[in-house]
C-alpha cells in the first residue's frame, strides 16, 4: 500500500464524522433555533473569510492581479444581470492580463 493511503483513509473517516456530527447535533432542532442560526452564521462567515483570504494571502498570482480579477468579475456579473459565467470569464481574463502586466 502506498504511504499516502492510511492518512487519506483516516481523513475520509474524520470528514464523515464532522459531517455526521453536525447533522446529528441539529437533528431535533427547529430551523429557527439559536444553535442553527449560529451555525449558519459561522458557515456563511467561513465562506466569506475563505474568499477574502484567497484574495489577500500569498498565492499563485500577485495580489493586485487577484483583486483586479475579482473587480472585473463583479463588474461583468452586475452588467450582465447577475450571470455567473460572464463574471467568472471576465475575472479570469483580468487576472491573466494583470499577471502579464505585473510580470
Amino acid at each position: 500500500m502506498h504511504q499516502g493511503w492510511p492518512p487519506l483513509l483516516a481523513a475520509i473517516a474524520a470528514m464523515l464524522a464532522l459531517r455526521g456530527l453536525g447533522m446529528a447535533l441539529a437533528w431535533r432542532l427547529p430551523p429557527g433555533h439559536p444553535a442553527i442560526t449560529w451555525a449558519t452564521a459561522v458557515s456563511e462567515a467561513a465562506l466569506a473569510a475563505w474568499v477574502v483570504l484567497a484574495l489577500l494571502s500569498p498565492g499563485p498570482w500577485p495580489i493586485p492581479a487577484r483583486l483586479a480579477g475579482v473587480a472585473a468579475a463583479l463588474i461583468a456579473f452586475f452588467a450582465t444581470g447577475q450571470r455567473l459565467l460572464p463574471g467568472m470569464a471576465a475575472g479570469l481574463a483580468a487576472i491573466w492580463l494583470a499577471g502579464q502586466l505585473l510580470g
Partner: peptide
C-alpha cells in the same frame, strides 16, 4: 474542513 460541522448543522433542518 472543520467548517463541515456547522455547515451540516445548518443544512439539517
Amino acid at each position: 474542513n472543520a467548517r463541515f460541522l456547522p455547515m451540516a448543522a445548518a443544512l439539517a433542518p
